[in-house]
Design a binder for these strands. Structure first.
Lengths: 348, 348
DNA sequence: GGTGCTTCTCGAATCGATTCGATCGATTCG
DNA sequence: CGAATCGATCGAATCGATTCGAGAAGCACC
């Protein structure tokens, strides 16, 4: 296929198509983009010429340079996709973002908030960026993006100048769960917390978590518990996974003065805690009550009917997407707050 | 902040930086890219000027136009991210791709193989594309991308002209599982298959699946079973989820002449089948043996120790990534075949 | 028939960088 | 001491489209 090879070697340009169609480049452009009046006849000539030359449409690089838009929405997530996507909430949110991006004809660029090679954040071509808050070390990225004049939306992150926030009622929702437990008569509760920072070290929840917690979500959810139970202990998990929850659960429930209720900061963690309880021969909820957070599908929760707060993850993602495009249009969308809904399951 | 607003309004250009530093634009470009000799003194002048003007580095749009590279690797996946990412295998593979992309300084563009708005596949700016095979309707996308002269790599897909294949020994691996069951004395087995096409309709496995199956992976795995059990029935699941597996399992195990062994085409499906068995009061493996495929972590398998074939998903992703960049460099990488490893669990 | 529209088309400027070849001292080599 | 070499810098061309303003043609109305 010499034809194929040469076609790859020198892709035809709009100018070539225009020449073959016997029109100017500007007219050809109009024929493709549909912006501006072009006679049917001319458009067909252009399209025929394109077909003949194997022209695949305007080069997006050139178009985006001229237009000043690239049609790409950046999404900054945690280091490892595998970690980030282990949590169904993140996926649901990303799906929401993808919905909006698709509707706006934009594609999604996945950027990882890696410490070392932050080259892509600095040099990827995109029109706006959504920062996913679970990433704890956003500041550097934000600084770079701000310098680039990039519209930014952050989901569940501390308020930052020039960054539109899409928030969740983490604190109030956690307080709701805590109150639920108190009403059931529990007076000694322990928390299994999401990682407080990006060190990823599991361990005992430090007393000065207010100072230490760099993760917005983890801190807010802790505050919520503190609003109801001024004093409580717990563990920091390694991540939002069942296994991490199991480990934390073993540590908490294995001790002498084990609490009668455990507040896990995510449903996956809660499932892990319950598994630990089973392994230790404890009955849930008789011996120990467990609550989660998120409202994952029962399918993802090993079939366990958790007491939890159901958060609107997809809606959150959608809102973030819409906000990003709205910023792009020069509007000034307001920050949004999503609320979670209490769902009583069989674990309390 | 008028400063902030104006900075966003008119981002400084390289030319402006160069002017302020008292050098030519070409020299300033060299100072940033590091390509070509620039005296330390000059570079610092340029950098200082950039700093003063709040210049965030060369505009990626312009750079990619000129260079002819955009530093973006496209990944085409199923319609809904939520569906695609429900399967840990896909995530693991994506993680492998991300590893290689990161190493090559490229970012990942997520493209969904949607029926309607295929605008992004036609017009996203990227340097190469990886097609994830589970997407059943690749042909259209491939045609468009081929026209664009885009280097393509496909993971687990039927061989296509101009598309580099990264394959898995689906057929042989499935045959291994089937043989394992036959050695255990099972003579009536049923298969729970991945969707055969993108209709997503669950139902009885049609006898003419060879003709019907448009999904490469599903078909190959069926062939593998057929190599050992010439005749077998089964169900087509709605997707690779526990719930879909449970539904299929109920249908299969609830019938009068239920098989003594079920071959599920993915571990998630297998977990679902096992759950169905439990609900029907059947013991695994005593009453019914179940095998899966993939080798997901026990954590993701509800703690079940499955008999399965462990496939190297991350390595597959890595290979796909490397192959894409290799194509980009003008090399001619060979198609690769990955092999899965038998792992005997407690379900047979 | 002239005037005032609308519809279509074109030329030229522009987006913001990268890169090739040329230039110009300064240094080194024969 | 002339020539060759090297490092640093610059000017100009180029990447491939989009868009603005202007011009031409066609038409209707008074």
């Amino acid at each position: 296929m010499t034809d194929d090879a040469s076609a790859r070697a020198v892709r035809p340009t709009l100018a070539a198509v225009a020449a073959r169609a016997g029109v100017s480049a500007s007219t050809a452009s109009l024929a493709f983009s549909g912006a501006g009046p072009v006679s049917v006849e001319t458009r067909e000539k252009v399209l025929a010429a394109a077909e003949a030359l194997g022209y695949a449409g305007p080069d997006p690089r050139a178009a985006s340079l001229r237009r000043g838009r690239s049609g790409v929405l950046g999404v900054v997530i945690e280091d490892r996709l595998r970690e980030a996507f282990r949590d169904p909430m993140n996926i649901a949110m990303l799906d929401g973002i993808a919905d909006e991006a698709g509707a706006a004809g934009a594609a999604l660029l996945l950027l990882t908030d890696a410490a070392g090679g932050r080259t892509d954040i600095a040099s990827a071509s995109m029109d706006a960026v959504i920062l996913v808050g679970c990433s704890t070390r956003l500041d550097d990225s934000v600084a770079i993006l701000r310098q680039r004049g990039m519209p930014m939306v952050a989901v569940e992150a501390d308020a930052m100048d020039g960054v539109l926030g899409i928030d969740l009622d983490n604190r109030a929702a956690s307080a709701t769960l805590a109150r639920h437990l108190r009403e059931l008569g529990h007076d000694r509760v322990a928390v299994v917390s999401l990682p407080l920072d990006d060190s990823g070290e599991p361990g005992r929840l430090p007393g000065d978590w207010r100072l230490r917690a760099r993760s917005h979500t983890a801190r807010e959810r802790l505050e919520g518990v503190a609003d109801v139970y001024p004093a409580f202990g717990g563990r920091v998990a390694e991540g939002s996974t069942i296994e991490a929850g199991r480990e934390a659960g073993m540590a908490i429930l294995g001790e002498a003065d084990a609490p009668t209720a455990v507040i896990a900061q995510s449903d996956l963690l809660a499932v892990g805690v319950i598994r630990a309880a089973e392994e230790l021969g404890l009955r849930v909820p008789e011996d120990v009550a467990v609550v989660g957070f998120d409202g994952i599908r029962r399918d993802d929760a090993n079939g366990i009917d958790l007491t939890t707060m159901v958060q609107p993850a997809v809606a959150k993602g959608r809102a973030a997407g819409r906000a990003a495009f709205s910023l792009l249009d020069g509007d000034e969308p307001a920050r949004q707050l999503f609320t979670s809904e209490f769902r009583r399951g069989a674990t309390t």
